[in-house]
Computed example of a mutant assay.
Amino acid sequence: MDTRRTTVVAEPAWQVSLIWVGFPVVGGVGLWLLKLAAKWILSLPFVPFDGPLRLLNVVPEPWGTVGVIAIGAVLGLVVSFIAAHERLSVAVRDDNAVFYRGGKSRTFDRTKISGVFLDGKDLVLLGLHSEELARDKSDLIAENIANAFQSHGYPWLEDGDPHRADYRRWIEGNPELPQGADQIFKARAEALRNLDQEDAAELREELTRMGLAVREDKKKRQFWRHTTPR
């Protein structure tokens, strides 16, 4: 087994370039259009937060337009940095898989992985007891992910989650849940509402240690199933 061979899956270069160029352009043009419309907006009977709109017309031209476009571009660039920080890439080897995101890496031993699949945009690694070792959202191309894991002999589950039918919606007070799970579910629900993905991921790991697999839908509703023999 050649453990040195590595297949890297990352977002294509054109997509990365589009993010770095597109967000600053959209930010600059968007703020410029807002400046053009500022006088008309201020003429309306009720305009909340009219202070920032008035500031758009304080600086004399052409510096007002140049400044607005520059500020919009900088804001767009900040969004690009955030997107780059949150971007997922995966390095697949015969003996392990490494997930990279936000300057951090997580390594998963091949011998502890029983299946790999995509659940929508979520890349999921299943453990030996049906637990989810990882569930990471990304914009990676599905075919590239599948080819990378299959080329290194990982069990790729073409039909998706084999345990999907086992999930039940979380409702506080369910006697089948372990003691203390409700408190973690409630904290995780708050993290999901606040779009705090890092905290939500950490709380998912706590539930995993309790023998639960957790997923949520587009409405942020949480669903769970048991992973270890009860």
Rank of each mutant, 00 (worst) to 15 (best):
R54A: 13
G28E: 01
T228N: 06
I69V: 14
Y154C: 01
S114Y: 02
I145N: 00
H85D: 14
H129N: 09
Q222C: 07
P60M: 09
S151C: 06
W63P: 03
S114W: 06
A97G: 10
V26E: 00
G30D: 09
D182W: 07
R204D: 06
Q150R: 14
F46Q: 14
R193S: 15
G127D: 13
R5H: 12
A84T: 04
T228K: 03
G22K: 03
M1R: 03
Y154W: 05
T3A: 15
P178V: 15
V66E: 02
G180V: 12
K112Y: 04
V68S: 02
A91D: 12
L203R: 11
A213E: 00
G180W: 10
W63C: 06
P229A: 15
S114K: 06
V98Q: 15
A97L: 14
R169C: 02
L203T: 01
P60L: 11
D166S: 02
R169D: 05
S130D: 13
F223C: 00
D159V: 01
P62C: 15
D159K: 08
Y167I: 02
G28R: 02
T3F: 11
P178A: 12
V79E: 07
P175W: 04
D199Y: 06
M210D: 01
N194I: 06
V59P: 10
L44Y: 08
P175C: 05
P155E: 00
V214T: 01
I82F: 03
A38H: 08
I71G: 07
E11Y: 03
F149R: 07
F99V: 07
A83K: 14
G22F: 11
P62Y: 08
L126G: 10
R54Q: 13
G76C: 02
H226F: 11
K35M: 06
D139I: 04
P62F: 07
F185S: 15
D182L: 14
R204F: 12
P162E: 00
A37C: 08
G103T: 12
R87E: 06
V98L: 05
S43P: 03
Q222V: 02
E176S: 11
A83Y: 09
L126N: 08
R135S: 15
F223Q: 02
G120A: 07
V124H: 02
T107W: 04
G211T: 03
I184T: 15
F81S: 01
K219N: 12
G76W: 01
L56Y: 13
K121R: 12
R193L: 15
W14H: 10
H85Y: 11
Q150V: 09
Q197E: 15
F46M: 10
D161V: 00
S89I: 04
R87M: 10
K35V: 15
L140H: 03
T107D: 10
D119L: 13
G30C: 08
V214P: 06
R230N: 11
I171A: 11
L128Q: 14
D136F: 01
P229G: 05
G173E: 11
W156N: 01
Q183Y: 06
P155L: 01
R230F: 06
V16M: 10
A189I: 12
D119H: 12
L75P: 00
P52S: 05
G115V: 13
F117Q: 11
Q179C: 05
H129L: 14
L133A: 12
Q222N: 08
L128A: 13
Q183K: 13
P24R: 01
A146N: 11
S80T: 03
D196N: 05
E158G: 07
